[in-house]
Structures are given as C-alpha cells and as structure tokens.
Simulated assay, not measured.
Amino acid sequence: MGKEDDFGLWERELDHGPSDARGSGRGMLLVAALTAAGCAALISMGQAPLGAAGLVLSSVILLLWRAGM
C-alpha cells in the first residue's frame, strides 16, 4: 500500500497526440471523395440501385469510422 499511482504515465500511454487526428481526417476525406465519385459513376452508367446502395453503405462506414468504431 506504500506505492503511489503514476497517473501521468497512464495519461501518456493513452494520449495518441494530434498527429493521428490530422492524418485520419485527410484519409477519411480521400476515401469519401473516391467513394462518392465511384458511386456517381455507377449511377451515371445506369446502375442507380447499385450506386445508391454504395452511397448508403459508405455513409454508414464513414460515420462509424468517424465515431472511432
């Protein structure tokens, strides 16, 4: 019972730093743009149901990615 807790060490282990947040934001933007362009291409080629399904599915995935799941 004589040991003290090292709360600072725990915080450093859990801290990912600001560089992770910036990198994932750029990657998320790139993935969103490419997915939207691909789904728009499918819709313009006459595959509207497939393009719409792709947009819905990619929106759900990007939402979960943004939430950190």
Rank of each mutant, 00 (worst) to 15 (best):
P49T: 06
A48K: 07
A48G: 04
L64M: 11
L29N: 09
D5W: 08
E11A: 15
L9N: 11
L57H: 03
D5M: 07
L9V: 08
R22P: 05
C39W: 02
L34K: 03
S44C: 14
E11G: 11
A36Q: 09
A52I: 15
S58G: 07
E13N: 14
G27C: 06
L42H: 01
M45K: 09
A41R: 12
S44G: 12
S59F: 14
K3W: 06
A40Q: 04
A41C: 11
R66D: 00
G25S: 12
A40H: 02
A52D: 07
A40W: 01
A48H: 04
A41D: 09
R66H: 01
V60S: 03
A36M: 13
G27P: 06
G27L: 08
S58F: 09
G23E: 02
G23V: 09
A32T: 00
S59R: 07
E4F: 11
D6W: 04
R12I: 03
G51E: 00
S59T: 15
P49E: 03
M45F: 13
V60L: 08
R12P: 01
W65F: 06
P49Q: 02
V56W: 05
L57I: 11
A21Q: 06
G54H: 00
M28N: 11
I61A: 15
F7T: 08
F7V: 02
D5T: 04
G25D: 11
S44W: 15
D15E: 15
D20I: 12
L34S: 10
G23Y: 02
R26P: 09
G17F: 10
A48V: 14
A33Q: 03
S59P: 04
R22F: 14
G23M: 08
L14Q: 13
L14T: 08
A21L: 08
M69Q: 13
V56R: 04
G54P: 00
L42V: 05
A52Y: 13
C39N: 01
G46D: 02
A67T: 03
L55A: 05
M1H: 07
I43C: 13
S59M: 10
L50S: 01
A37C: 06
A48N: 04
C39K: 00
G51V: 01
Q47T: 02
G8R: 13
A37E: 02
A37N: 02
G68S: 03
T35E: 05
